[in-house]
Design a protein around this nucleic acid. Structure first.
Lengths: 146, 146
DNA sequence: ACGTTTACTGGAACCAGTCAAGAAAGCGAC
DNA sequence: GTCGCTTTCTTGACTGGTTCCAGTAAACGT
């Protein structure tokens, strides 16, 4: 898909601004970027953009479901434009890299807790933890502790 | 259950100290406490204990699997002594309160990603998000569950 | 009891993310 | 086109949760 960011923003009732377009375009081609990563990418395209603007765009777009935020424990948040389907994620314990995982099980059997303890559950989040290819093979990267 | 903390610590090759015992005992009776919460409880029993000591105990015990750390996005980490079984959690979006969820589905169908994208997956974490009983009823209750 | 090893104290630092005030830009009306 | 209201961006200080550091104190084997 990768629909026109302009359409998306308008559809969400948001103003069309350069930082917003740049953020959405960056995320479309670089899913699972961190805020800092997004900021870098946006600055490459636009010149100077404040970190705050990036956070603001990301938060605003998260609020209207144009982007989805993933917050893996122990790592900065990551963002993606693939919303709508509740796909899950694969996250590297070491470097925090994230990849999409479609849930195959038609009925999503894990989406219903056995007992909800009085909670009104509205979502189930699944994270598969492991080591990505880059992190498990070469221990020569300076961060070889783990 | 609730084995003697002394045994647990010795079994893990850790020294027996008052802060450690107090932390483990507190967690046994107050699962899903935050670090700050644990610190308060420990201080009630022991008098003065530094925040760092609490973090150190929690981290050390996490490392040897005497406690498990849960880090719900947007909320401080929570700790519990129920380790070994990979049960999941129910987390309140508003107050961060966490409850245990046993996974009923014998084969744990959600523990295998459809494609692992080159990752060596070692765990699947499931968080059910929602509102706890306290938070969804009264619209004025900001944050307090203890 | 002694010395070594490990843990605790207190303080400073860290990082991702947020808040606040003002300046600038978008966009609908004229 | 441009006026003016409103939203959004900039700058810069700030927070909360957690960790790092250096020094002191306590645990445990002998």
């Amino acid at each position: 898909m990768t629909p026109d960011p302009r359409e998306l923003l308008k559809g969400a009732g948001l103003r069309l601004t350069a930082p917003r377009l740049a953020v959405l375009e960056w995320l479309a081609s670089h899913p699972h970027s961190t805020a800092e990563h997004v900021a870098e990418g946006v600055r490459e395209r636009l010149g100077a953009v404040s970190t705050q603007a990036v956070y603001d765009v990301l938060n605003t777009c998260s609020r209207v479901a144009l982007v989805r935020r993933i917050e893996p424990a122990g790592h900065p948040a990551r963002y993606e434009t693939r919303t709508g389907d509740d796909h899950h994620h694969l996250v590297c314990r070491r470097c925090g890299r994230a990849e999409d995982v479609d849930h195959v099980h038609g009925a999503a059997p894990c989406l219903e807790p056995s007992n909800s303890a009085g909670f009104a559950v509205d979502a189930a989040e699944v994270i598969f933890w492991g080591l990505c290819g880059d992190c498990r093979l070469p221990p020569r990267n300076e961060e070889s502790s783990a």
